[in-house]
Design a binder for these strands. Structure first.
Lengths: 193, 193
DNA sequence: CCTACCGATCGGTAGG
DNA sequence: CCTACCGATCGGTAGG
């Protein structure tokens, strides 16, 4: 449990600020104020640039998802259980550091090249591996014969609201949310019995 | 079929620009260029301000959803069919004017008061009415006993990826997308037979 | 629709 | 970490 470096404090405050205002509307002067510095120029002792902060946030979160899916691929073989584990991964990452994942979700497009292409390649790789699991489930008869691309994006998109929920309402328990998202995505809204 | 006014052309180009770069990163100079004006100042003959363009886009789309749910409430009574109609409404609105609904989804937070509160009230109203339908379905046994807030946001969020799909891949037919989103949300990923 | 222009604010650097 | 500062760009106005 080492103390946070000032750089870490700045990056975390940047994530919060980018999440509050959006990357473009966030100013380095406001960021300075939020970490107790009088001058924006002082920030440059801790980070290289505004975009460097964005890069760090985006790639750190990409790493979490890549690591997560790698673990799931190696340790679980049933596609149904793999999807459940992936849903759990998304909920876990989102609730563990909500502001950071919000920036990862919504602000990555402000990356400039070559980081933008690098980021999109990581995302593409993740999506392909996720889709491969869906494909396997369809082939083995575990899943319905749904277009895998449609299923992939519907599920990924459904998992994104978690960060919205966590920021605002939070009127329900995390365990209920987890259970019900999983139920809805795996078995649907309609009652069958 | 009257000709588009220059104002309409400007608003549509603004929607595209806001969707491409985000509201804050979009400049009036670039907007002018996109509609064939040499000077940003010329834009102000057609719109009052940058934010006025955003307001128009956001409230126009809010209206579409409000009108849609009103029609569904009056003409359909079965909650299962109502949810199917709502899913269809979201897909219809998104595919009919994809850039406009993207701005509506992602850029509303740049509205300033009092429009921001007004917009959020409209959204809240829509969500409450959507949730009421879910509640009714649960009470009548048509739907599973899922937390209605969780179901609401999971479904709404799942429907948002349609604008992402429409912009990028579009490797599958709209009818397949519609059918499979509906199947996934109503009956889930798992095969039951 | 253009010319001319303005005050405000931006991200960032030099130097200590 | 601050002082001092810079060039660029921003949304918008006045006037024709």
């Amino acid at each position: 449990m080492t103390a946070k470096t000032k750089k870490q404090i700045v990056i975390e405050a940047a994530a919060k600020l980018f999440s509050d205002k959006g990357y473009s509307a966030a100013s380095m002067r406001e960021l300075a104020g939020r970490v107790g510095l009088e001058q924006a120029s002082s920030l440059y002792n801790h980070i290289k640039s505004k975009e460097a902060a964005l890069q760090e946030i985006c790639f750190e979160n990409a790493q979490k998802f890549t690591d997560g899916i790698t673990t799931i691929e190696s340790n679980i073989s049933d596609p149904g259980e793999q999807i459940r584990a992936l849903i759990n991964l998304h909920i876990q990452v989102a609730t563990n550091d909500i502001t950071s994942v919000t920036v990862f979700n919504d602000e990555w497009r402000h990356l400039s090249e070559p980081q933008l292409s690098e980021f999109l390649a990581l995302r593409k790789d993740y999506e392909e591996r996720f889709k491969e699991i869906i494909n396997k489930g369809i082939k083995t008869g575990t899943f319905k014969n749904i277009n895998p691309t449609v299923a992939l994006h519907t599920i990924l998109s459904a998992l994104k609201w978690i960060h919205y929920w966590y920021k605002t309402g939070r009127d329900s328990d995390l365990e209920i949310v987890k259970k019900d998202i999983m139920l809805l995505l795996m078995s649907g809204l309609s009652s069958n019995d």
